[in-house]
Every structure is written in C-alpha cells, then in structure tokens.
C-alpha cells in the first residue's frame, strides 16, 4: 500500500498556482512603482553620466589634504566630542524619570503615562538637525545650541529603550520585595534597577556613538563643532581643507567605534 502512495507523491512545489500568481503580481507592482518614481523625479541624465569625471576632478582638487589649519580643525573636533559627550550625559539623566513614567508597569497613573509617551514621541519625531535649527534661533549659534539639540533628540531614544527594558523585567523579585513590606522606592532600587542596568549601559554607549556622528554635521546649521569649519571650507572652495576635515571626521568615527566597543565589552 505504501509503495502505491509513494509512487503518486513524486511532485511537490513550494507554492500553489494561486500563491505564485500573487507573488508575480507583487513583483510586477514593485517594478511599476519604481518605474513611475524614476519617471516623475525629472533626472537630468547628462549630469548623472557626467558624475564619474566630476568626481575625479573634485578628488584631484582635494589632493593632497591641506594640514595647514590642522590645529583649528583638531580644536573643532574636540568641541564636537564634548558636544556629544555632554549631551549624552545630560540626556541619560533626564531620560530616567521619563522612562519610569512611560513604562506601563511603573507609571504612577494614566496621566503620567500619557505625558511620558508624549515626551518620547515628540523628541523622536524631530530630527537632530531640525532641533539644532530651532535652538540656534533660541540660543544663537554655538556649542550650547548643539548640546541642547543632541540632548533633545537623545531623550526620546534613551527613554523609549529604557522604558521597554523596564516593561520587560521579571516580576517575581518585585513580588518578593512587596511581600517583605518594602516601599515603592526601595522596590525600584532593588528589584527594577539591577534588572535594567545592562540595557541602561548598552543603550547609553550606543547613543554616545550615534551622537558623536550626529554632532559632526551640527556645524552646518551653526550649532558648533567641526561642521562649521567644513561649511566654511566648502563655501570658499578650499577643497584641500575639506578633505582634511573629512579625514579627521573619519578618524573620529573610527575612534568612537573602538572606544564604544571597548566600553561595551568592559561593562557588560
């Protein structure tokens, strides 16, 4: 009996004809959307074909990098590091209470939950550059606007991830400490903080790494750091200096990566 069944079961396909039709339909639709998008954006193709030679030309003008202004570039890059670090530190402190009220299981009540989530969403939905434009208008150009801009964007990121970590804790130790008669504050201290600690450090280091990169462009809108020098060099067609700045930024980003992965290994 078995053999007869097997002899009939020598055909198998991953999809039924209907599924296959739907998949082909999906591919066709995607191709159509791409074609429509390309045709509607008015590309000047001559410039696109011209790009390689333009690139070669620009590269030629950038070479060799000009280290003449290196002292001021290094000073600006140090400023950039400080913007990122200070902003991350402040954001970490500010995001703690926000995470606490925005987590379902620790929020005091519905109103605070709503306030917490509003802070997180509004911080996250605005890009750092836009925050920077706003704060340059308020504080004037310079490092303070940069720090506040980075901080505002970071609160949402840190608060959101920390809040999720709080929501995912194991409830059992909390129950045990409730049974001991511990107050709310001490339960947070002993049962919640130790459980959230690893996430806290991982997220803070990750955000510092991101902030380092974001603060390099802040100068483009006048919010301090290396971007200001970059903007100045581009405006004056000082291409050798532009390439010097770009190299310095590259070095900074690599250094930041090394430091943050070292810290991650060391702490976690």
């Amino acid at each position: 009996m078995n053999t007869s069944v097997h002899s009939q079961l020598d055909q198998w396909s991953r999809f039924t004809p209907k599924q296959r039709l739907i998949r082909y339909g999906g591919f066709a639709l995607t191709a159509l959307i791409v074609a429509w998008a390309l045709s509607s954006i008015d590309v000047i193709w001559a410039w696109v074909w011209d790009a390689p030679s333009q690139m070669g030309d620009l590269f030629g003008r950038m070479m060799p990098p000009d280290p003449q202004n290196l002292p001021s570039i290094l000073e600006a890059i140090w400023q950039t590091v400080n913007i990122a670090t200070l902003a991350t530190l402040i954001a970490v402190v500010v995001s703690l209470p926000v995470a606490y009220i925005a987590a379902q299981n620790t929020t005091p009540n519905k109103f605070f939950l709503w306030v917490g989530r509003f802070i997180l969403v509004s911080s996250r939905s605005v890009n750092t550059i836009i925050w920077a434009l706003l704060f340059v208008a308020i504080f004037g150009p310079g490092i303070v606007a940069g720090i506040v801009a980075i901080m505002f964007r970071s609160i949402g990121f840190l608060g959101k991830l920390l809040g999720e970590a709080i929501e995912e804790i194991d409830r059992k130790p909390v129950e045990a400490l409730e049974a001991c008669g511990a107050s709310r504050f001490k339960i947070v201290l002993y049962a919640i903080v130790p459980q959230v600690m690893p996430t806290f450090f991982a997220v803070a280091i990750l955000r510092w790494d991101i902030n380092l990169r974001e603060s390099t462009v802040l100068g483009l809108v006048g919010a301090g750091g290396i971007g200001m020098i970059l903007q100045g060099a581009i405006d004056t067609f000082n291409w050798p200096e532009v390439s010097m700045v770009l190299l310095t930024i590259l070095a900074l980003v690599i250094l930041g990566e090394v430091v943050s992965s070292y810290l991650r290994k060391k702490i976690l």
Partner: peptide, 17 residues
C-alpha cells in the same frame, strides 16, 4: 507584611545582586 515571611517556588531572587 514585614511580620510575614514568604518563600517562593521560583526563589524570586534578584539575580544580578
């Protein structure tokens, strides 16, 4: 509640402490 001690099936310790 301080006057009542409780022991749990899952121990309910704080692992990282």
């Amino acid at each position: 509640r301080r006057r009542i001690g409780m022991v749990f099936q899952g121990f309910n310790l704080i692992d990282r402490l």
